[in-house]
Computed example of a mutant assay.
Amino acid sequence: MAHVLPAGVTVFERGWLSSNNILIQGEGGTALIDSGYCTHAEQTLALVDSALQSRPLDLLLNTHLHSDHCGGNAALQARYPAMETHIPPGHADFVRVWDAHALSYTPTGQQCPRFHLNATLQPGTDMRLGDLHWQVHAAPGHDPHSVILFEPQSRTLVSADALWEKGFGVVFPELDGDDAFDEVAATLAVIERLNPATVIPGHGAPFTDAPQAIAYARQRLNGFVQNPAKHLQYAAKVLLKFKLLEARHVPLPALIAWARNTSYFNHTFQSHFAGATLEEATQQLVHDLVRSGAATLQDGVVYNLG
Rank of each mutant, 00 (worst) to 15 (best):
H133E: 13
T125M: 10
Q153D: 08
A235D: 01
L285S: 06
T85L: 14
T277R: 08
L240Q: 10
S263R: 14
A160L: 05
I214F: 12
G90F: 02
G109N: 13
P113C: 03
I22G: 02
V171M: 07
G71V: 05
L232P: 00
E165T: 06
R128E: 04
G177V: 03
Q298K: 13
F265V: 09
P88I: 06
V95K: 10
K166V: 07
A259Y: 06
Q43L: 13
A236K: 01
A74V: 05
Y37G: 01
T125L: 10
L305A: 14
R114T: 10
D34A: 11
L59P: 05
E165C: 07
A294T: 02
F181R: 05
C112L: 05
R128P: 02
P253K: 06
W164T: 01
N222F: 02
L59G: 02
T106K: 13
T198Y: 02
L47D: 15
A92G: 04
C112T: 11
G36D: 07
T39W: 03
V290L: 04
T85E: 00
D58A: 12
D58T: 07
D299C: 02
A217V: 04
S67I: 00
H66I: 03
H249Y: 08
Q110V: 13
L121N: 05
K237R: 15
L59C: 05
Q111H: 12
H203M: 07
H142A: 08
A186Y: 01
W16A: 12
K243H: 15
T156D: 08
L76T: 04
D288E: 15
P206W: 02
G177N: 05
L17K: 11
V11I: 09
D49L: 03
L278A: 02
G167F: 07
T108Y: 05
G306Q: 13
V48S: 11
A7C: 04
G90L: 10
V97A: 05
P144K: 08
F172E: 14
S104C: 05
G8E: 11
N73P: 01
G141N: 08
N195A: 15
H231R: 04
L305E: 15
S18A: 09
R155I: 01
I87Y: 05
R220W: 08
P113A: 07
V170M: 12
R260I: 00
A119S: 15
Q135Y: 00
H3L: 06
G109D: 14
E13Q: 14
F224P: 08
E192M: 00
P152C: 08
K241Y: 10
P88V: 06
D34E: 13
D161T: 09
L132V: 00
D93C: 00
A213H: 09
V158G: 00
V9W: 12
R55Y: 03
A139L: 03
A180L: 01
V48H: 10
A180Q: 04
L278R: 06
I33A: 14
P251N: 09
T10K: 14
V147N: 10
L52M: 09
V95I: 15
Q153W: 01
L252F: 04
G109Q: 13
D49I: 02
P81C: 09
L32E: 12
A281T: 04
G36N: 06
L252Q: 12
A119K: 11
G26F: 10
H64Q: 06
E151V: 04
H66P: 00
P173D: 12
R96T: 12
P201C: 07
V136W: 03
L305Y: 10
A235G: 06
A180P: 01
P228Q: 06
A197H: 13
I87H: 06
I22S: 09
